[in-house]
């Protein structure tokens, strides 16, 4: 599903903003193509989270405040089926493990599926849940009857993700997905995300402060600042615009930092933002085996 947002505005004070009040989103236009692994970056309070919460109607689009189209769903249409849309656009919040509530892992993962597809039989639901739990790399028979609260932090997060992907969304939005995990947990989790994107969810959108993560995993990115998008492009294009990155108070990813330093010394390296690309480029230039 293609995501197309045009001139979106939003203020926490409602449509009629007071003079002193700033728009949390001030004319945001952004298209995310189907199949992209997309990064949304910017400082805290730049409007990133507010923006993504519009994509599945958690924050309703007010009249005259812009247009949002997700696939065939037009959010400015009052009759749009929000429930159906939410089944197609899965959303994983920051620290998603804090939304777990059911007595067993299986029940918790089934929550969304049951809400979205009440017509499904118990057998069908069980199948879907099993697939989802296995997809996130957990042992279904061992964990399904356990209380989600007995699990480790990393496992809880996986259960929470399973609960979202069980309804087979076409778009998966994640807000700061790796926050609070230890290095190993983070690495495993990002690999999981990459795998999900490859075989299961067409489009992945992540909101993150971690520039290295965005540089490594995302194809495209948008930079938010004060409720506006000040840059949109491939990750390569976005990070190449140094001025924009610094202006928005962000850091360069390590690979870009190295490229920058080398360029200062007259060593221009033409490569993308991913580590492997950088390694290849440097190896070639410095003489090593690729």
């Amino acid at each position: 599903m293609r995501i197309e947002v045009k001139d979106l505005r939003f203020s926490y004070g409602g449509t009629k903003k007071r003079k002193t009040e700033k728009y949390a989103l001030d004319g945001v236009s952004l298209t995310i193509e189907e199949g992209e692994f997309f990064g949304i970056i910017g400082q805290t309070g730049s409007g990133k989270s507010t923006f993504v919460q519009h994509l599945n109607g958690l924050i309703p689009l007010k009249e005259g405040m812009g247009e949002i189209k997700v696939g065939n769903y037009d959010l400015s249409d009052k009759r749009v089926n929000l429930k159906e849309l939410r089944s197609k656009v899965g959303m994983v919040f920051q620290y998603p493990e804090y939304q777990l509530f059911a007595e067993t892992v299986e029940e918790d993962v089934a929550f969304g599926v049951k809400n979205f597809f009440p017509e499904k039989s118990a057998e069908e639901i069980k199948d879907v849940v099993k697939t989802a739990i296995e997809l996130v790399g957990l042992d279904y028979p061992a964990l399904k009857d356990k209380s989600p609260f007995e699990l480790s932090g990393g496992q809880k997060r996986r259960v929470a993700i399973a609960g979202v992907i069980a309804s087979r969304p076409e778009v998966l939005v994640l807000d700061e997905p790796a926050a609070g995990l230890d290095p190993q947990g983070k690495k495993d989790f990002l690999e999981l995300l990459e795998r999900l994107h490859k075989d299961f969810v067409r489009t992945v959108v992540i909101v993150s402060h971690d520039m290295d993560l965005v540089a490594e995993y995302c194809d495209g990115a948008a930079v938010f600042k004060d409720g506006k998008i000040i840059k949109r492009g491939t990750t390569e294009e976005v990070f190449a615009d140094r001025e924009c990155i610094f202006k928005s108070g962000l850091d360069l990813p390590v690979v870009e930092y190295l490229k920058e330093k080398l360029a200062e010394k007259g060593e221009k390296i033409a490569c993308g933002t991913k580590i492997s690309e950088f390694l290849d480029a440097v190896t070639q230039r410095w003489g090593g085996k690729t």
């Binding site: 429930k83 939410r86 089944s87 939304q99 809400n115």
Partner: peptide
């Protein structure tokens, strides 16, 4: 939390 559960289809 309400938003997170709404995103999972809670009504």
């Amino acid at each position: 939390i309400i938003k997170a559960q709404k995103a999972r289809g809670a009504d």
